[in-house]
Design a protein around this nucleic acid. Structure first.
Length: 285
DNA sequence: CCGCAGCCTCCCCT
DNA sequence: AAGGGGAGGCTGC
């Protein structure tokens, strides 16, 4: 494959190697891999790009045949957003735990992934580690997705997934998640504008609609809305964040749903960004 | 309303 | 070395 030359995405993104790795490979997306030469390679929709950091300058390139636009990359990486403003608005001044996390992972941000792909990945996420989820996504793309470039496969659409028998997904080692994917695919196939309509509604409404889908509980709904729907007030509570709330915030008696509510109130409009900082913090320790 | 086992499979631990 | 327990969760009892 012939790539374009490296192009700058700016020198003021705030990214460090550390926070870039945490953003691309820290549990938001499962479609990035780090090559030996320090280059990140990732795929979303029909976009395929490489990223690297040269000092403070973030650079990208893409196979010429892929026809990826700079604006698509900027949007995906959420570069145009006022990231500094969001960080500034987080309550780190009165919250030493958050302050430590923000300091340690400066540059970490929330991606804007395709909604459908995000939903798919998080339907697979229960009781799975990041490498395992990546493996399942990769196998699914190869089995049912389009080959958008030689050897590069996009994830299949939900329409395509609706045609795949649950049994085949079990062969790919989806386990009990095969049923979630299969049944959700059927619902989405019957209601083609389900996802589109959902993105136009408020966080609260979108969350409860998403939770009607088989295999989607509060955590999966929040991850989908945060990483794939740009609902930055979503505060996903997994076992790691539960540990943070319990041990670092002194709230061991709240259940998961109560922790999610606490998070949205305590951290405010950008609770999801705070969650990602805290998630990186505990996961590292 | 709450808490818990079961679900697939893999991995880690003993 | 084989076998139990838990994993970035959801569902039904």
């Amino acid at each position: 494959m012939t790539f374009t030359s490296w192009r700058s995405l700016g020198t003021r993104t705030g990214y460090t190697e550390h926070s870039l790795a945490e953003t691309l490979n820290g549990g938001q997306s499962f479609r990035w891999s780090l090559e030996e030469n320090g280059v990140w390679r990732g795929t979303w929709n029909r976009c395929h790009v490489e990223l690297r950091l040269r000092g403070s300058r973030l650079e990208w390139r893409t196979p010429e045949a892929a026809k990826v636009k700079r604006s698509e990359v900027e949007r995906y990486l959420s570069l145009g957003e006022s990231y500094a403003v969001a960080c500034e608005e987080l309550p780190w001044r009165s919250d030493p735990v958050l302050a430590r996390a923000v300091e340690r992972f400066r540059g970490l941000r929330i991606l804007r992934q395709p909604f459908g792909e995000t939903l798919f990945a998080f339907l697979l996420s229960s009781a799975k580690s990041i490498p395992q989820i990546k493996e399942l996504c990769g196998k699914t793309a190869q089995a049912y997705g389009d080959e958008i470039l030689p050897g590069v496969y996009a994830l299949p659409t939900w329409k395509r997934l609706a045609e795949v028998p649950e049994k085949e997904l079990r062969v790919l080692k989806f386990g009990y998640r095969a049923k979630y994917v299969s049944q959700t695919a059927k619902v989405l196939a019957e209601e083609p504008d389900f996802i589109e309509k959902l993105q136009e509604t408020s966080y609260v409404e979108a969350r409860s609609r998403l939770m009607e889908l088989p295999g989607v509980g509060g955590k999966v709904a929040d991850c989908t809305l945060l990483f794939g729907g740009s609902k930055l007030e979503a505060f996903p509570v997994d076992t790691w964040i539960a540990k943070v709330m319990s041990e670092l915030y002194g709230l061991p008696d709240l259940n998961l749903e109560q922790m999610a509510t606490f998070g949205r109130i305590h951290f405010g409009r950008y609770a999801g960004l705070a969650q990602q900082f805290l998630f990186s913090l505990v996961r590292q320790e």
